[in-house]
Design a protein around this nucleic acid. Sequence first.
DNA 1: TCCATTATATGACCTCATCATATAGAAGAG
DNA 2: CTCTTCTATATGATGAGGTCATATAATGGA
Lengths: 119, 119
Amino acid sequence: MDFDECACSGKSLARLLRPAIMGTLAKGGAHGYELAQRLREMKMFAGDLPDHAGLYRALNHMEQEGYLVSRWDTEHAGPARKIFKLTSAGRACLAQWRETLRGYRQGLDELLRLLGRAR
Amino acid sequence: MDFDECACSGKSLARLLRPAIMGTLAKGGAHGYELAQRLREMKMFAGDLPDHAGLYRALNHMEQEGYLVSRWDTEHAGPARKIFKLTSAGRACLAQWRETLRGYRQGLDELLRLLGRAR
DNA sequence: TCCATTATATGACCTCATCATATAGAAGAG
DNA sequence: CTCTTCTATATGATGAGGTCATATAATGGA
């Protein structure tokens, strides 16, 4: 049977793009294209980032929320880069994410125990 | 700081309602209201199921997809109950979910390691 | 009679992500 | 000098999935 269209084949972890971005930015500022490359290296994105559209939208949205700040970098050759940095609000949000994700893992374990018993 | 509106405070595990439903139905048929009660007992839903609207929508949608079948039960007092059962396609989908969720768990661990290092 | 409980359902709306597409600078191939 | 590719950001259309508010209806108890 073919479940390619079904969520049960979900390739990317839903709603975890934001914490992944913040966790990466916590190690130093970066621009979108660079982030895409770093995130692609993570197993959880299975070699293909959810697509750049979502990434840029998430970055700009997080900036509007005050979790990131950006500045344009025109010092390099090629198109201008928008460098993002975590704000202190962003760091606080990241700390909250850490707790939330630990809870998610417990929930996932609970669900896997349920599915493990299921026949 | 208040993150109640932020996804970092996420109370329910996104997109895991369907596998939770299927896992529960794998142990025997049930109607929506009954499922809501059983799911509410799971820690991952933290005492409040995402709301009955989503549950009934998910059930009917999964039936349209062929993962569930239903029959009306009018033998009891009170309003009629719609009893749902997993089909063989549903069981196959559930098996796929099991694999996907194991992958999700690994991705979550990877992300938690990243956040653990982040300062 | 009125209310709570049991039970299902839908319209309006929101968030998040994807697909397709647009824009633009720079470097290298031919 | 033109074409393609890589770097880099952005947006419109669309869809999945879920929430909020509300509607409907049977039953039993205060």
